[in-house]
Design a protein around this nucleic acid. Structure first.
Lengths: 127, 127
DNA sequence: ATTTTTGTTATACACATACTAGAACAATTC
DNA sequence: GAATTGTTCTAGTATGTGTATAACAAAAAT
């Protein structure tokens, strides 16, 4: 598990762990069926508290990214086949909206935003 | 000023005010040179505390959206002509990245994300 | 010129969240 | 049987959010 934690960042540590795992999935470093390390071992590797990792795992479960089997482990789920639940689309839309508004206010055109989004995605996938 | 405040939302009130003003700019309801109402009057209209609106105004100033003239008023700035400061692009990129990652993990393709972004933008502009 | 309104600053309180810490439990794994 | 697992509990500190009251000096309005 290659996640870099920045303790002085304004984004909470548990969110950094969540994002790191999701980026690993996007890069196919984590595949559906893979089992995440235990909350204790990952917390030890990252140098953070066990409860912080535990909170991240449950956040991932609420997003539908992993499935937690009690007393066993956390398994990467397969991407939702076919349609995506509207609740999930709503959450993404509400998170996306204010950032897109800020981009427009900054003076970006719709085409520039599209290119910007594409470059970020390729950066996440490629590196 | 037509901003709807949802006190029980998980997004802070000052952020709701900031987003509402920026959406007003995108919809051309607020034009460059327009003067925002005083923090006291807007706070009274919205039914929130003066400091909450004051925090929103300073957030807008840090984003470069408005210019606060002490003892006078807050003026809508003109959109940055030509190139956008790289600092501003970095902040937008860092905010955009985790949401795009979540979209990819949810199973959206790059084309679906592009369409999704376009629909949100048209929703913000039009309504 | 006086009054009002302005943005600013300061202090204080309540509430929620974030993070860490230690401990204990039962179930799984070795 | 021993170690590890996720879960749960209590507890503490720190930070962020929102409200509240007050005071100040400068600008605007009368």
């Amino acid at each position: 598990m290659f996640i870099q934690i920045e303790p002085q960042s304004d984004t909470p540590i548990y969110a950094q762990v969540t994002n790191g795992i999701m980026e690993g999935i996007v890069r196919s470093e984590l595949l559906p069926g893979d089992i995440l390390p235990s909350v204790r071992s990952l917390a030890g590797d990252l140098g953070v508290n066990m409860h912080t990792v535990n909170k991240s795992y449950h956040e991932l479960e609420s997003k539908g990214v992993i499935r937690i089997v009690p007393k066993s482990g956390a398994v990467i789920c397969s991407p939702s086949e076919g349609t995506i639940p509207p609740q999930r689309l709503n959450r993404i839309s509400e998170a996306l909206r204010p950032i897109l508004v800020e981009s427009l206010v900054a003076g970006m055109s719709e085409e520039e935003i599209a290119e910007f989004v594409a470059s970020i995605i390729s950066n996440v996938k490629g590196d």
